[in-house]
């Protein structure tokens, strides 16, 4: 009985699964909201939702508009708020420029004088000495502190321009936290364990922190996941994120369609979008590519390089008016040479 049911639900050979998937995702997509919502004042992280997020994922944009991370912890830590908070303090990026009241650059002696903001320092439990230590770590920089005044001097000055570049970099540098993470919020899941949601992401650096469970911590930027965890994890992130985006809108799409899309996007070993630079642009057939977008470009390139079209796909066979290779049209009849010999003998 289970066998029969299994056979009933499996896909028939020759079924146009890609087209079905495209329609199954595309039609509900027309009902999605175009606007990105911002909820001000709530203790949450801004994430893009709805159609913009879906487009971002499917087009495989290199830099998502609002990247975010979910950070999970090892067993001993995840249920203890104090320990989670300790790690949390290491996450949020605090730049030097946000810790000062003002600064003065002396280009002649290549000295940057910073006037630290005491209240801000107290907020992050920092001392001016810590800042000096952090600055001194930079190559070719000398730092010293007198009360709230911190002086950073460049040892070897080359040109005015390079001096200024260093100053700007110093001001922008992160004193505590991880570059790219602008906000981090501790949240509690249903089973009582804590996890952190961040705005901005830097997976590579975050999983280096001890106490973080690297098997569950993830970024919602597929490219970053690909770099840190590999292509399979990136595929799972793409599928998960598309699924989540669609489900949030109150629409149901079977996972198989989304999974197929994610599979195809990741089938080249790197993440490719669905558009003309990705999946559609990588089709083998000239006619199929020309039928999609940039018709003239594809014909010109094909004629210059002497490309061949084997007429195996669907689009090119519709173009030339032949039977398409789907369903029963996919079945081909071939005769063994030995059989022909037998026939001719008769």
């Amino acid at each position: 009985m289970a066998d029969i049911k299994d056979n009933e639900t499996s896909v028939v050979p020759g079924e146009a699964v890609g087209t079905v998937a495209a329609q199954s995702i595309g039609e509900p997509g027309t009902q999605m909201v175009l606007r990105t919502f911002h909820s001000a004042g709530t203790a949450s992280v801004v994430v893009s939702k709805g159609l913009p997020r879906l487009i971002e994922l499917i087009d495989a944009r290199k830099r998502p508009r609002f990247p975010s991370m979910h950070i999970y912890f090892d067993k001993g830590i995840s249920s203890k708020y104090e320990k989670v908070r300790e790690i949390w303090r290491m996450l949020e990026e605090v730049r030097l420029s946000s810790l000062i009241k003002g600064f003065d650059e002396d280009l002649r002696s290549a000295t940057l004088t910073l006037n630290l903001d005491r209240d801000k320092l107290a907020l992050y439990e920092l001392t001016s000495r810590q800042i000096v230590a952090k600055l001194a770590k930079r190559e070719g920089l000398q730092a010293s502190a007198e009360g709230d005044i911190v002086k950073a001097k460049i040892n070897k000055r080359e040109s005015l321009k390079s001096t200024r570049t260093v100053f700007v970099h110093v001001l922008k540098s992160a004193i505590i936290g991880i570059v790219g993470i602008s906000k981090a919020i501790i949240q509690q899941s249903e089973d009582g364990t804590f996890f952190i949601v961040t705005a901005g992401s830097n997976l590579e650096e975050v999983i280096k922190i001890s106490g973080i469970d690297a098997t569950r911590t993830y970024s919602d930027d597929p490219f970053e996941v690909n770099k840190v965890y590999g292509i399979e994890a990136a595929r799972n992130i793409i599928a998960n994120e598309i699924m989540q985006t669609i489900t949030e809108e109150g629409i149901t799409v079977s996972f198989r369609h989304v999974g197929l899309l994610a599979d195809t996007m990741c089938s080249f070993g790197a993440i490719k979008g669905a558009g003309r630079h990705g999946i559609a642009g990588n089709k083998e057939s000239v006619l199929a590519r020309a039928a999609f977008e940039e018709t003239v470009k594809h014909f010109i390139n094909a004629s210059v390089f002497g490309e061949r079209d084997m007429l195996r796909g669907t689009a090119e066979n519709i173009l030339i008016g032949k039977q398409i290779t789907l369903g029963t049209g996919r079945v081909r009849l071939s005769v063994r040479k030995s059989d022909i010999a037998k026939l001719s003998k008769k």
Binding site: G230, I231, E232, D263, S267, F268, G269
Partner: peptide
């Protein structure tokens, strides 16, 4: 489907170009 030799998981397994990797999904 392809996986790059420079992929983190391929590197962990020390897989060389031409090898096939099975993934339990």
């Amino acid at each position: 489907p392809k996986i790059l030799a420079s992929d983190v998981q391929a590197k962990l397994l020390n897989a060389k170009p031409g090898n096939m990797i099975a993934i339990s999904r």
